[in-house]
C-alpha cells in the first residue's frame, strides 16, 4: 500500500518536527532550561516516521535513550514531551522521567529506555500479549547497532522467533555504538545477518529513505500481523550530532568528510525533493509547514514553562499501584 499525498505530507511534517524538536532540545539544554542528558535523533528521522506510519494506535513500540523521534512518530503530544524535559507536572511522567524515560502508553509508546538493549524483552512481552489477545496488532522494537552486542538482543530474537510473535525488530544502525564505530564493536557489521541465525526474515534498507523504510517495514508488519512471526529490519543511517550531551555538546570525534557525506543524504531533503518532483509539494507548502512546526514548538515550550514543578510532598506518588 503506497502512501497517498496527505500521508506523505504528514510523514514529512513529522520528520521536520522531530528534527526541530531535537535541535530545540539541544539549545534548551545548553541554556540550562532542561536537565540531564539529551540524545538527539537528528539524521535518523526517516526510520521512526517510516515505520510508525504503518502502525495503529493499538500497536505497541519500545524505544531507546534516543527516543524523542519514536515518541513523536507514534503520536505523542510534544507539549507533554516538552513539559517532561522541563521536569514539570504536566510532563508525560509528571517530571519523574525526563528525556530518557518518556512514554505514552495511551498511544502504545511503551517507553524510552536508558539501557541499551533493554527494550527488546519488553517489546517481546508486548508482542506475546498481542498474540494471546488474538487480534492483528503488532509490536515494534527500535534499537541501535550497539544493542546487537547485548545478550538481550539475542534472547529476544530467539524467543520471539520460536514463538512466532507479532513483532518487528528495527535496528537503527547509525554507525556508532555510543562513540565507537560499528567495525570496532562487531565482527559482522551488517546487523541483518543475525536474522538467519534466528530463523527470521531479515531485510536491510537505506534508513535515510523514508519511503523505502516504510515499504520494508510494511512488509515486515504484514508478516507479523499475518502470523508469520518476527522480522529483523536493519536501517542504515547516521546521527548528525553527538551521542549524548549534558551541559554542552561534546567535541566531534568523527571524520568531517564522513559527516558531510551523510548530510548529503539528508532524509528530509530527500523526501522534499521527491515530493516536489512529483508535484505533491510546493515551496510555499514547505515554508508553511516549517512555520507551523516552529509555532507548535513555541507553544510546547510555553506549555512546559507554564506547568508547575512537581511538589516534593508528592515524591512517593506512583511508586506502587493500588
Amino acid at each position: 500500500m503506497t502512501p497517498n499525498r496527505s500521508e506523505l505530507i504528514e510523514m514529512l511534517r513529522k520528520m521536520i518536527l522531530i528534527r526541530e524538536f531535537d535541535e530545540l532540545a539541544i539549545r534548551l539544554r545548553t541554556e540550562g532550561k532542561i536537565y540531564g542528558a539529551i540524545h538527539p535523533y537528528v539524521g535518523q528521522e526517516a526510520i521512526a516516521v517510516g515505520v510508525c506510519a504503518g502502525l495503529a494506535s493499538a500497536d505497541r513500540i519500545t524505544s531507546t535513550h534516543r527516543g524523542h523521534g519514536h515518541c513523536i512518530a507514534k503520536g505523542a503530544d510534544i507539549r507533554r514531551m516538552m513539559a517532561e524535559l522541563f521536569g514539570r507536572v504536566d510532563g508525560y511522567c509528571r517530571g519523574k522521567g525526563g528525556s530518557m524515560h518518556i512514554a505514552d502508553f495511551s498511544v502504545g509508546m511503551l517507553g524510552a529506555n536508558g539501557i541499551v538493549g533493554a527494550g527488546l524483552p519488553i517489546a517481546a512481552g508486548a508482542a506475546l500479549a498481542l498474540q494471546l489477545d488474538g487480534k492483528s496488532n503488532v509490536a515494534v522494537c527500535f534499537f541501535g547497532d550497539g544493542a546487537v552486542a547485548e545478550g538481550e538482543f539475542h534472547e529476544a530474537l530467539n524467543i520471539s522467533s520460536l514463538w512466532t510473535l507479532p513483532l518487528v525488530f528495527v535496528c537503527e544502525n547509525n554507525q556508532y555504538g555510543a562513540n565507537n564505530p560499528v567495525a570496532a564493536q562487531h565482527r559482522v557489521t551488517d546487523v541483518v545477518a543475525h536474522a538467519g541465525g534466528y530463523g527470521m526474515v531479515g531485510q536491510s534498507v537505506d534508513g535515510n529513505d523514508v519511503l523505502a523504510v516504510h515499504r520494508v517495514a510494511r512488509e515486515a508488519l504484514d508478516r507479523a500481523r499475518g502470523g508469520e512471526g518476527p522480522s529483523l529490519v536493519e536501517c542504515k543511517t547516521y546521527r548528525w550530532h553527538f551521542h549524548a550531551m549534558r551541559q554542552t555538546p561534546p567535541p566531534e570525534t568523527r571524520p568531517a568528510d564522513e559527516i558531510a557525506e551523510w548530510k548529503r543524504r539528508d532524509p528530509i531533503a530527500r523526501l522534499v525533493s521527491d515530493l516536489k518532483a512529483r508535484g505533491l509539494l510546493s515551496e510555499s507548502d514547505l515554508e508553511r509547514m516549517h512555520r507551523q512546526v516552529q509555532t507548535d514548538l513555541r507553544e510546547a515550550v510555553a506549555f512546559a514553562e507554564a506547568s508547575p514543578f512537581p511538589d516534593p510532598k508528592d515524591i512517593l506518588a506512583d511508586m506502587f499501584a493500588a
Binding site: 512481552g125 494471546l132 509490536a139
Partner: peptide, 24 residues
C-alpha cells in the same frame, strides 16, 4: 509457556505483557 533458558528476556517480557493486560 515453557521457555528457553533466557532469564533476561523472560523477566522483561513479563513487564511488556503485564503492561498489555496480562498477569505473568
Amino acid at each position: 509457556r515453557y521457555t528457553p533458558i533466557s532469564e533476561s528476556v523472560l523477566t522483561g517480557m513479563a513487564l511488556g505483557a503485564g503492561a498489555c493486560g496480562f498477569r505473568p
